[in-house]
Write a protein that binds this DNA or RNA. Structure first.
Lengths: 223, 223
DNA sequence: AAAACTATTGGCGGTCCGTCAATAGCGTGC
DNA sequence: GCACGCTATTGACGGACCGCCAATAGTTTT
């Protein structure tokens, strides 16, 4: 069926490409090699010939997905303030995210999500944690009134998870450092930032774009 | 083999318990029903009898892991300042984390890899992103000198991911809110918090514990 | 044109999961 | 005390999937 004989590199590329499409739609375990082979118009055995195992094929696919989204290059603005630069940085992140949202979401989840049930469980657990934080910190009523507060605290909880990973798993931070960092950050969020976000009416405020931020290549979600 | 007939609820509990042990060690796909059944001293068919499908068994196990409400109850301190409370909150989180580290890593990593290779890929991608942020923001040299800076920025990136999820997937935040929140937070981190963490020499600083924070029950990693 | 090379296929064996009829423990009514 | 019903529990069957390997069919070399 595999119509013709093909240049190995080309085949390889084509297979990976087809695999990426499927792996973006469904998680690892729910897409079969048979299916990938069919989508590529190729025998199943050929996948093993090129990649050895299904997992390796998956890794190759993901690796290429992640290697592509090269950060949109920001231009160096000599006169830019720290604030301008942070604003641009954030803007760049959001832009990138909005653009290849599929890719990122797919890359992060491999075995777990795609199962809405499991997702609900984890979400619920995290929400409980956030509720607890809100309570301890004295935001109880405020948080109940403004749902955004809750969502923002979820953001903080994400930071807590990430730094904790750096501490427990990679050892690049000490427990003390994690503590100080989280405490200081949470404090600023509570005292200064939170109200500002909630009461923001949408007027004014955007980056002082001297030049374009911008996208050397349009970066159309992977390729 | 299944030694005796047993009370259904008891059986159910026993199976879940055994399953949890295995699911903590290895990810979903790498632990077979056969194995779980063996560990529980029970026929494989019985798992399907009680839980229908493997996934449902998995969900039941995870649900119980997460339900054991990890929150250690903090005492209400009437005279405590906001700072004290945030400190306690953070301390509570870290304490909890250090204690049932296995459980959390398992629960958190539920939607993640467990494949070291894949983990490496994702880590590398995130590190690249963080490098980029550091560069844009003008921390390039500083970050290269102090690895902690890099790790802390990873923390911020965790926050970015979490808030973005709230925006893109759950719709509890607007893009604008995410932007303002991230920008403000990043700015404070850069100007005020980062140096403090890096130069912290380990002297002084801990919560003003009026009462104990503490652990009504020792909370010995799940149960 | 024959031979060496390799991309490509199809089938084999093994593992794993969901289903289902059959078995075996336990309580109940007479 | 015994037959009967209920259900926990098992063992086996069918289907899907994966990794391996010998056989096949293009392509290049001599």
């Amino acid at each position: 069926m595999g119509v013709e004989r093909m240049d190995p590199d080309e085949r390889r590329g084509q297979i990976i490409s087809r695999a990426q499409v499927l792996f973006r739609e469904r998680p690892y375990s729910e897409v079969s090699n048979t299916e990938i082979a069919a989508a590529a118009g190729v025998s199943r055995g050929l996948l093993n010939h090129y990649f050895g195992t299904k997992r390796e094929l998956y890794l190759a696919a993901v690796a290429e997905m992640l290697s592509v989204p090269p950060v949109p290059v920001p231009e160096y603005l000599p006169g830019a303030s720290v604030r301008d630069r942070t604003c641009q940085s954030v803007e760049g992140w959001l832009e990138l995210l909005e653009r290849n949202r599929e890719t990122w979401l797919a890359a992060i989840g491999m075995d777990g999500p795609a199962d809405p049930e499991l997702e609900r469980l984890l979400d619920a657990a995290r929400d409980r944690l956030v509720d607890h934080i809100a309570e301890v910190v004295g935001l109880g009523p405020y948080a109940r009134e403004h749902p955004e507060v809750h969502a923002l605290l979820r953001g903080f909880s994400g930071m807590a998870e990430a730094t904790s990973r750096e501490w427990l798993k990679r050892g690049r931070l000490t427990r003390r450092q994690v503590h100080v960092f989280l405490e200081e950050t949470l404090l600023r969020i509570l005292t200064g930032i939170l109200p500002r976000v909630v009461e923001d009416d949408g007027s004014g405020h955007h980056c002082a774009h001297a030049g374009r931020t911008t996208t050397g290549t349009p970066s159309p979600d992977v390729r």
